[in-house]
Amino acid sequence: MTNLGELAGAFVELADTMVDEFDTVDFLDTLAHRSMALLGGTSAGVMLTDHDEQLKIVASSDQRMHAVELMQLQATEGPCLDAFRTRASVLARLDESRERWPLFTPSAHDSGYQVVCAFPLRLRRQTLGALNLFRAEDRLPDPGEAMLGQALADVATIGLLQERAVRESTILAEQLQRALSSRVAIEQAKGMLAERHGIDLQLAFDTLRRRARDTNQTLSDIARQVVGNRGR
């Protein structure tokens, strides 16, 4: 069912963090998109804890997902929070989760999702956050898919911590702060490009991505330059 070549590609890409221009936000965007493709998700997102031990959204495949992730944080309930607290993966059909998440369930349902999954990003004693994967189709992941979801989360966690080891002086708090601050800069840059060129936010994001690729810089660096030049 899952293409083996695609699977191998995802693992190699997620393990490849030993590079000079590693960018946490880019990396987590990749994790979200690869997971969606491999596990047949409609949307995916990643949350990480910050230095105040609060979960923050670092990646979202689309606006609808972002809205539902925000809703989880506001309601302080939902699959991502459960996966983070229990350090175990969560797989649920929304039709059966009204009692478990009275606030989250109707809101996710209204957004068009039927099945919600969350896989903790954990290694030994540390829990960094969780990977969310939502489906519009009413089908729970089979055991193989569930294992694959957790495996993707695991390899991404190792990648993140490995990156930490690469720069000995940096510690996790600094890395997460960097990721969250980059996410803010990327969203600011999207807004600037959208306004400056009269385009929508998705196109603005594609433009940022293309610039990063064409000039061989990270998405975060390009975003900072755009914000510095006020979208010019």
Partner: peptide, 22 residues
């Protein structure tokens, strides 16, 4: 605070970028 969970919507950052240009 921008950092607090209620205000962490990306929309605020996107809007700040647009208003900066306006």
């Amino acid at each position: 605070t921008i950092a607090s969970s209620g205000e962490q919507s990306w929309v605020i950052h996107q809007a700040a970028g647009m208003v900066a240009v306006q």
